[in-house]
Design a protein around this nucleic acid. Structure first.
Length: 579
DNA sequence: GCCGTTTTCGGCCCGACTGTTTTCAGTCG
């Protein structure tokens, strides 16, 4: 059980409370606690065992008891009581767009519908249209929604969302009356997956004109709602996209508003209220006189509250507002800080480019150094290297390094951590390399204790410099494996082993929450592309974004070291270093 | 249900759009 599982439990309680028409504030309390748990950098299970749950902001005695109970027996008093009253199968019905808690409650109470299938039948029979608050029109929409949910693809991966949003942004920028366009929402916060796209445009003219052009764009499939300043469409690719248009004088406050997150806004607006101010997309205004005080640029919005600009990646309601108030926002690592890329593959294993091609491409990108880290023999499907082939490959790498100017090319390997925790290549061979990444590619189904011991063995081997994609998740495909993350961090710190922030779009592993815990514990990180081609090198900003979402500064990132310092630490030295 | 350099009780973020209404509740972000 991880923090995410607990957060889901609290979210479900909140939703059931809403359907049962409980106090909106009680609902909000559960939602807030769920968000706090989701973003909590330590293990909430451990906090429950240590009876420290109420130290989590937003968790009081009552919710703490629910969490403890959930940890112990996969359910809680509150849930059990609610489930007696409200069928939990209604949670799936609530997922349908256009149906909120009030309407779900009405359908349930008046028609006896308890799940999506029941609703589908009720819609077929025209029972919903006959209800107060519904009509034949809304019933038709509901029908379409149910069909859509059946073939629903989940959330969209960040890289894809960014690509789609960027092309829409360009299309909007080409319109005559448009002044500025920005991608906002969770895409701007670099959230790992994105639900809907949010775009903001400003105009000197009639917002309505921009809306008219927007819905005519090639990418737009269906118009879901269309007002003078806000339009929602479904794109042909299935994603929903909101466009908001405001006067350019509100650019900053509008951008801030549509970037979110909801929890960041709640904290900020509470702070504003304390100070006699009010924040909306139309600026920071005096709560009494409504006098406009700030909103031209985002930085002005924060300044009006006496705060420095909080970077979008931190706007999750995970303590960034209080940190800003205390003047303790971290100076986040940036893409420019990254001096080299230490995890990439070539044609020697499963990559598509040669050592030299990768080196040249990285030099173009401005890297000072790289490390070639092809797979080891256990990954047969990737043409993994035997010890003999690895030694010969290392010679090839050194030849390229000697021949090329303007970039250092280090020898390395992505060695497999076998089920028993031993490495797939003998230690003396690994010790002859500059930088060794150790990863797990098979045998994911182990107990947390076994997996922890497996990783600890690799960390303690004395020949490993980094653990690759440490949690092993693949977005939308495979959950992270169970392990004692804190134990891994302690060992990594003790043995001077970095944890990778793998920038591959389907991995993004570590994510923000785990990056944050890692640096809190003092562990070092390495942000890597894991590129299998020249194009694959382009994903590095996504890894940087995860680090930024984890409050990481340059000082914690080993590949932010300038070449000379990096050499002093790693160049051929691992064999001599004592663990 | 949570929380407190205004409060241990009385508050709890703000606005757009839709649809069914007859002045606004519900949903969404």
């Amino acid at each position: 059980m991880n923090n995410h599982d607990i957060a889901i439990h609290l979210q479900e309680i909140a939703s059931l409370l809403e359907i049962s028409d409980a106090s909106v504030f009680r609902v909000r309390a559960f939602r807030r606690a769920a968000e706090a748990v989701e973003g909590y950098p330590e293990s909430v299970v451990s906090a429950a065992v240590a009876q420290m749950l109420t130290h989590i902001e937003g968790v009081g005695a009552s919710i703490a008891a629910d969490i403890t109970s959930f940890v112990e027996r996969q359910s809680s008093e509150t849930w059990d009581e609610l489930a007696q009253e409200v069928p939990p199968t209604l949670l799936a019905v609530l997922e349908l767009r256009g149906l909120g808690p009030k309407k779900v409650a009405a359908i349930w109470r008046e028609l006896g519908v308890v799940d999506v299938e029941g609703l589908r039948q009720a819609v077929e029979q025209g029972k919903v249209a006959a209800m107060r608050g519904f009509s034949a029109k809304s019933e038709e929409k509901l029908k379409a929604e149910i069909e859509r949910l059946g073939r629903m693809q989940g959330r969209t991966l960040l890289w894809r969302a960014r690509a789609i949003a960027t092309s829409l942004k360009r299309a909007l920028e080409a319109l005559p009356a448009v002044q500025r366009v920005a991608i906002a929402g969770s895409t701007r916060r670099w959230s790992e997956t994105v639900g809907d796209l949010d775009l903001l445009a400003t105009t000197s003219g009639e917002p309505r004109r921009i809306m008219e052009s927007f819905v005519e764009l090639e990418a737009v499939g269906e118009v879901l709602s269309n007002g003078p300043t806000k339009t929602t469409v479904r794109l042909r690719n299935g994603m929903r996209c909101d466009l908001r248009v405001v006067d350019d004088g509100f650019w900053g406050s509008a951008l801030h508003h549509f970037t979110g997150s909801k929890f960041h806004h709640i904290e900020l607006r509470a702070l504003a209220k304390e100070r006699g101010l009010k924040i909306s997309e139309y600026g920071v205004v005096d709560a009494v006189t409504e006098e406009f005080l700030a909103g031209a640029e985002e930085v002005d919005v924060y300044a009006a509250l006496g705060l420095p600009l909080i970077p979008p990646e931190l706007r999750e309601g995970h303590g960034e507002v209080s940190a800003a108030l205390a003047g303790q926002l971290p100076e986040l690592v940036t893409g420019k800080d990254i001096r080299g890329d230490l995890h990439m593959h070539t044609t020697a294993s499963d990559g598509t480019a040669s050592i030299e091609e990768m080196a040249r491409a990285c030099r173009e990108k401005g890297h000072e150094y790289i490390c070639i880290s092809d797979h080891s023999q256990a990954v047969t499907i990737a043409n993994g290297l035997t010890p003999q082939r690895l030694l010969a490959h290392a010679e090839d790498i050194r030849r390229v390094d000697a021949a090329i100017d303007g970039i250092r090319v280090f020898t390395g390997c992505e060695v497999d951590i076998l089920r028993d925790g031993t490495l797939d290549i003998p230690n003396d061979v690994l010790a002859s390399l500059d930088f060794v990444v150790a990863s797990i590619h098979s045998g994911f189904h182990m107990s947390a204790q076994e997996m922890t011991e497996r990783l600890l063995a690799a960390i303690e081997s004395g020949v490993v410099d980094a653990i690759g994609h440490p949690r092993g998740r693949r977005l939308g495909q495979r959950e992270a494996y169970e392990m004692d993350f804190d134990a891994i961090l302690k060992a990594a710190l003790a043995h001077d082993v970095a944890l990778e922030v793998n920038a591959s779009p389907v991995r993004l592993d570590l994510d923000g929450v785990h990056c944050r815990r890692a640096v809190e514990m003092g562990a070092k990180l390495v942000v890597s592309s894991d590129a299998h081609s020249v194009r694959g090198l382009e994903v590095l900003p996504f890894g940087v974004a995860m680090a930024r979402r984890g409050w990481v500064t340059r000082a914690s990132v080993v590949n932010a070291l300038p070449l000379a310092e990096f050499c002093a630490r790693y160049d051929g030295s691992r064999g001599a270093r004592t663990p």
